[in-house]
Simulated scan of single mutants.
Amino acid sequence: MMLLIRIHLLLLMIFTAGCVSTGDVAQVTAPSATVTASEDLEAFPLPEPDYQRHVIRLPALEDEAAHFVTLVIGKTVLTDSVNNYRLLGTLEAVTVEGWGYTYYQLESEGHMAGTLMAVNPAAPQVERFVELGAPLEPIRYNSKVPIVVIVPEGFEVKYQVWSAAELRVAPQG
């Protein structure tokens, strides 16, 4: 019995050594060892042949809950200057088994859809960035875990960080 009490006290001491008190709540902190850029990608799969992996590491913010990220995925291609184009494909959010992290996998053959306005045959083609046509869901801002996106070769991954506006009260009346 006395041995069990000593083991319990020892475990309690080990646990509380890594805690920081913030008022009434104890918060567990990570060990002081730093995580390298390659170590934080261990959970994520490597890209298949003809695919590439893009990694977005977000800086820490004071209020990350008030921010989110949207991905802008596309290709720079030659098109006419008149019509609007979108790339065809599906972006799937995949959960890494055993880790719970999410990465994003694009399946696309690079085909485009566009409007059919008449174009002057003598008009030169222009180079422009054409985005994936399907609307992409916003991603919760989290500076502790990288955003990993796997796309076919030739695709570009861009992103936007959005912040919530100050909460306002609607007047009555």
Rank of each mutant, 00 (worst) to 15 (best):
Y101T: 03
I7W: 07
V157I: 11
V72R: 04
K144D: 10
V148P: 01
V148T: 10
Y101F: 14
G74I: 01
S143W: 00
P138Q: 11
L9A: 12
V161Q: 04
E127Q: 15
V148Y: 06
E92P: 01
Y141H: 01
F129D: 06
I73M: 05
S163M: 08
P59F: 02
R168V: 02
A165M: 07
E64L: 02
D63Y: 12
L167A: 11
A17S: 15
R128E: 09
P135N: 09
Y103R: 04
E97H: 11
Q125W: 02
W99S: 13
S38V: 08
P49Q: 07
E62Y: 13
V20D: 14
E131T: 11
S32W: 08
H111W: 12
I147F: 05
S81W: 04
A37H: 09
T95I: 09
W162Y: 13
E64D: 03
D50G: 02
L132F: 08
N84A: 12
L78M: 15
H8V: 13
M2T: 13
D24C: 01
W99P: 01
A122R: 13
T29G: 06
G173C: 06
E156L: 14
F155I: 06
G74T: 03
L87Y: 02
L132H: 05
L61Q: 15
P59A: 08
N84P: 00
G100Y: 11
R140I: 00
V77K: 00
G74L: 03
V20N: 05
S143Q: 08
V157W: 04
P138R: 13
A170V: 09
V161S: 04
I14V: 14
A60F: 07
E127M: 12
A33V: 10
R128H: 06
A66N: 04
P171I: 00
Y103N: 01
Q27D: 07
N83Q: 09
S32T: 06
T34D: 07
R53N: 09
M1Y: 14
F129N: 05
L46A: 15
L46I: 09
I150S: 04
L9S: 12
D80G: 00
G74N: 03
I150C: 05
F44S: 04
V119Y: 14
P121I: 00
A170M: 09
M112L: 15
V55S: 08
L116A: 15
A43Y: 08
V82E: 11
L61R: 14
T22C: 10
V157C: 05
L46R: 15
V35C: 07
L116V: 11
S32R: 12
Y104W: 14
H67D: 00
L3M: 10
T115K: 00
T16H: 14
E39V: 00
L46W: 10
E97W: 06
T76E: 13
I139F: 07
T34L: 09
